[in-house]
C-alpha cells in the first residue's frame, strides 16, 4: 500500500472522527448549554466537510500515482 492509499484511509478515518466528535460536542452543548462545546461541534462539522473536499481533491490530483 502506497502513501497515497494510506493517506486516503487516513482522510476517511479523520472525517469519521470529526463527524463523531461534532455529534459528541453538540450533545454536550444540548445537555450542559456549554458555549465552547457548541462552537467546537460546529467547527468539527466544518472540519469534516473540509476533509471530504480535500480527499476528493487529493484523489483527482494523484490519479496517475500507484495505489501499491
Amino acid at each position: 500500500m502506497s502513501l497515497k492509499a494510506f493517506h486516503v484511509v487516513f482522510v476517511i478515518v479523520s472525517s469519521l472522527l470529526t463527524a463523531g466528535f461534532g455529534l459528541w460536542a453538540i450533545r454536550q452543548w444540548s445537555v450542559r448549554g456549554d458555549f465552547v462545546s457548541g462552537m467546537v461541534g460546529i467547527g468539527s462539522f466544518v472540519g469534516c466537510a473540509v476533509l471530504l473536499w480535500y480527499g476528493r481533491w487529493f484523489l483527482r490530483k494523484l490519479k496517475g500515482v500507484s495505489w501499491l
Binding site: L3, F6, H7, F10, S14, L17
Partner: peptide, 23 residues
C-alpha cells in the same frame, strides 16, 4: 514515503486514543 507511512500510523493511533481516553 516510508517516513510518511510511519507518520500516518502515529496519527491514526492518536485518532483512536483521543475518543477512547477523552470522549
Amino acid at each position: 514515503e516510508c517516513t510518511g507511512l510511519y507518520w500516518h500510523f502515529v496519527d491514526l493511533v492518536w485518532i483512536v486514543l483521543f475518543p477512547t481516553l477523552y470522549l
